[in-house]
Write a protein that binds this DNA or RNA. Structure first.
Lengths: 206, 206
DNA sequence: GTCTATAAAATGATAGAC
DNA sequence: GTCTATCATTTTATAGAC
């Protein structure tokens, strides 16, 4: 039984419309960012009026929060569905690869890196913070294991590894390469993974 | 003879006030970003009225452009003053170290990474674009030399190296570490340089 | 629940006195 | 060149009809 079949037809339509609103929100956030995205933009992209939009989401902050939550849920689902026999470093690499691919295909705005203002807004959203903390906890454990096994540099503080890892998912180099280089998406992903884990240089032992 | 002594006292005061305006603009950009920075913010931070501010800079775009130009000029000055006997990889490392230190000490907003909107605005500023292209040309040559000498990974496209290098100057991991870790600024710089050139992993040969 | 119309507030930019 | 006062516009959010 699908998740939708539990709901009445009316509620199904409602859910579908909410998803359409979140799709439009994601696309506009990616193109314009939070500050420049207006509720008029979203309403007209979906083809509804602004008061109707406010029936679904009580504020701009709420709307963006829900869009970000859907994003985090996608990442958590991907992680949950990975082969449990993979090494921690392989899981981390696969997660980053997934995030880069989603982003290159036009899905992901990754707002938290954008500005302190947006970050604070999201941090006030308890539902969002809960999802983030849970995912962060899983990734922390993977980083610790990979450091112990020698796949990640054990001389670096785990904070440095984790924050740098997150930053790679929203690295502006991706957009620059997509716009100004002749590399295709798969080549960009391959090189970004290489740069993340092996760096720009030819490593000397330390 | 200093640069200021060529000017009348009145013009000196004018220049000093412009510098104070640019200082305030830089600080506000760092804290709030372009979209949320208002001309009222800048005027009251400097202690002048908004119309006075507009006598110095004809628009918000112009003001931010000049602040960014001053930033690029600082980088170019630092590069020009480096020891000419340094290896290209040492110069690149020193430049990144300088940029990270400036940023950690509260100076640098590094807008170009922020949003497509801001990037487009700056790209319309010919004075700014000129400075950026000149600096970019110098860094391109350093990257090519470092790849040739084997200090930077020659198997990576130079585009990938250059864009990734730029991205490290505005890596959000820096702010996360400054806010949420117990590392001091110098430790953060050391680790960020390590991550940039050597990556997160323990490199296997390729 | 959807719409038209509008309130309320913020903000980029300027007029005009001094 | 600096100020007070103000315009014009944008934008979040809502009232009220249907």
């Amino acid at each position: 039984m699908s998740i939708l079949s539990k709901l009445s037809f009316k509620d199904q339509a409602f859910k579908l419309r909410e998803n359409a609103i979140l799709d439009a929100t994601t696309a506009i956030l990616r193109d314009k960012g939070f500050d420049l995205m207006t509720m008029d933009d979203v309403a007209s992209a979906v083809g509804i009026s602004k008061p109707s939009l406010y029936k679904h989401f009580k504020s701009k902050e709420d709307l963006v929060g829900e869009a970000m939550i859907r994003l985090i849920d996608g990442a958590a689902d991907f992680l949950a569905q990975l082969d449990k026999n993979l090494q921690p470093i392989e899981i981390l690499s696969a997660m980053l690869e997934w995030a880069l691919r989603v982003r290159l295909e036009g899905g992901m705005p990754f707002l938290p890196s954008t500005s302190a203002h947006v970050r604070e807004m999201l941090m006030r959203n308890l539902k969002y913070v809960g999802r983030v903390l849970k995912l962060n906890h899983q990734l922390e454990k993977l980083v610790a294991k990979a450091q112990k096994s020698g796949d990640l540099d054990a001389s670096l503080p785990s904070d440095v590894i984790l924050f740098s890892y997150y930053s790679r998912t929203c690295d502006p180099a991706v957009e620059f390469l997509q716009r100004y280089s002749k590399l295709d998406n798969e080549q960009i992903i391959k090189h970004m993974l290489q740069v993340c884990f092996a760096g720009l240089g030819t490593k000397q032992p330390h």
